[in-house]
Design a protein around this nucleic acid. Structure first.
Lengths: 126, 126
DNA sequence: CCGTATCCGACGCGATACTG
DNA sequence: CAGTATCGCGTCGGATACGG
């Protein structure tokens, strides 16, 4: 597994620390899905429609490694494993909320700009 | 060029919009470097030590496409081109500050967790 | 000075199939 | 249920060299 966190990210710009990215396509979503309490492996696959078990495992492992989530194996059969946000993981909710708010407010604008860029009339010249 | 923004990012999780990532390794740094005013192409290479012109161009172009920066070519020789944060780009500074604050407060903790994970004694058993 | 052209390696992510 | 094993593709980003 790799490190979605760049250690140089905070020194690369002379001015001040630049924002991190918690990393990857799924990490933020998983954090949000764990916001309201512990979830089992299989439960996460529902809101995270489209994630494969391999990727879910990978992502969860790296989050565990970084101390963002805790993994609890209750053993027995059928297996039962729960993932939960750690205290550290919960501290991410605030900055993430700020990002969500930005997106809600300004993402359409960005998408419009993207469409307009090089967006000559599709096929109707005159 | 590609799209670092995942359009599904806001619908993939059932609960609510999940945080975006503005994308890539350099975009956030560039935003911060433009925070205090317009900068010329060559000026950005200084604080962004290590970026290649190709990547800088690519990143700036995609930011321009997304309406985050404006590009002004003053013409003449030697060439003189300035990049500046747009109004939309400036709205990113707030959420980015929240992320910076998080990193300043908690990144060491995360790094410690990462080291501790699988971090048996490096080579001194007894 | 401000880029572009070409090549290329590494990683993120997904599809599919299999197991304790 | 909760994963693991393999395989492969697309993209990001870097090295290097050249052009207006």
């Amino acid at each position: 597994m790799s490190e979605p966190l760049d250690p140089d990210m905070f020194t690369g710009c002379a001015h001040a620390p630049t924002p991190f990215r918690v990393g990857g396509k799924w990490t933020p979503r998983i954090i949000r899905c764990l916001e309201s309490g512990p979830r089992r492996f299989g439960e996460l696959g529902v809101p995270l429609r489209g994630i494969t078990p391999k990727v879910l495992t990978e992502t969860l492992r790296s989050m565990e490694r970084d101390g963002l989530v805790t993994r609890t194996d209750h053993g027995g059969v059928p297996p039962r494993v729960e993932y939960e946000l750690s205290a550290l993981g919960r501290t991410l909710l605030a900055p993430m909320a700020a990002c969500c708010a930005w997106a809600a407010a300004h993402l359409p604008e960005l998408l419009d700009a993207r469409e307009a860029y090089g967006g000559q009339a599709p096929c109707a010249p005159g």
